[in-house]
Simulated scan of single mutants.
Amino acid sequence: CQLCHKHGEGVKLVVHHIVYRSQGGTNRVDNLITLCTDCHTTKNHQPGGKLYKWMKAKKKVTKQLKGATFMNILRKRIMTAFPEASFQYGSQTYVDRKNLLLPKGHFMDAIAISGIKSVGQMPDTVTLISQFRKKKRSLHEATARKGRKQPNTSSKRNEKNMNHARGLWLNDYVRVIGNHAKGYVKGFKSKGYYVYLTDGLGNYVLSNGKNYINRKQCRLITHNGNWQKAEQKLSLYEFK
């Protein structure tokens, strides 16, 4: 509920028109908001009520819809590319997931949609894949930015922002000698590398209390392109 912020399986939600339909409100997404049945009352609709004040103020729904737009485009293209496929609405997925005794989560929904009748064994971890941008995006400067004495007219990188140094490149997957910590190179320093380390189960760790790894402690596992892969405990991944 966007008014009292109640949530959970026991909360019944309805769609409310911010500007009432009787006052010319449309069915556009930016005029719709979700409310629980305890808030969507006649009293709140009348002068002095909270929903009435929203209407007079023409309350703006600030949440961006880029994600939903992208997924709608993707869905249409997938259905065009695979005409034998079918899609399923979330209301049915919710029922199927509950019947399989699965918690809420993206890949849990994928399991439910697959049509299997039972789950024999659940994994302990999930694999997360994310994109990493290697290129420095800032253009040359006409005036010096904060922290610089001179404008960076040639787009020159400082040492921390170099894309490679001393045998390693940005986004290379490395390990720390002496423990199980592994991670991706994020930047460079005169005698080492900046690496965000995990213990292999998605837990963030520090080496000697810092993100900085001395080159003598660091060993290359594999060179990478623009993608990162990490394992995370299932208990950390699940939606709360």
Rank of each mutant, 00 (worst) to 15 (best):
Q46G: 04
Y237D: 04
N211C: 15
K189R: 03
K191L: 09
A81D: 15
D199A: 12
P123C: 08
K134T: 10
K117S: 15
S207G: 04
V119I: 12
S235D: 14
G115L: 15
A112F: 05
H17V: 02
N208L: 10
L100V: 01
K229Y: 13
N31D: 05
P123M: 08
K58F: 00
A85F: 07
S130R: 14
P83E: 05
S138V: 10
N27P: 04
Y194G: 08
L74I: 14
N72C: 09
W227Q: 04
K98L: 01
S207Q: 14
T42M: 08
L65F: 09
I116G: 12
K104Q: 13
L170M: 00
L128S: 15
N31E: 08
V126R: 03
A81M: 13
K117Y: 13
T80L: 15
G209W: 06
Y173Q: 07
V195N: 12
V195E: 11
G120Q: 11
K59V: 00
R166K: 04
Q228H: 06
Y193G: 07
K104Y: 15
I129F: 11
R21A: 02
K189N: 05
K240M: 08
K76H: 14
S118I: 04
A165E: 06
H180I: 01
F132W: 10
E84V: 11
V126N: 07
E84K: 05
L13G: 01
I18A: 03
I111L: 13
Q88A: 10
Y193D: 06
T69W: 01
E159Q: 02
L32P: 03
V95E: 11
K43E: 07
K210H: 13
Y196F: 10
M162E: 05
K189T: 01
K233P: 08
K76M: 12
R166P: 01
N27D: 05
M79L: 14
P47V: 00
K53F: 03
S190F: 08
K135N: 13
R97V: 00
G183Q: 11
N27V: 08
K210Y: 14
T37L: 05
H180E: 07
K191E: 10
K216N: 12
G90N: 09
V11K: 02
K182E: 11
T42I: 04
I33G: 01
S207V: 10
P103S: 05
R145T: 06
L100W: 01
K186D: 03
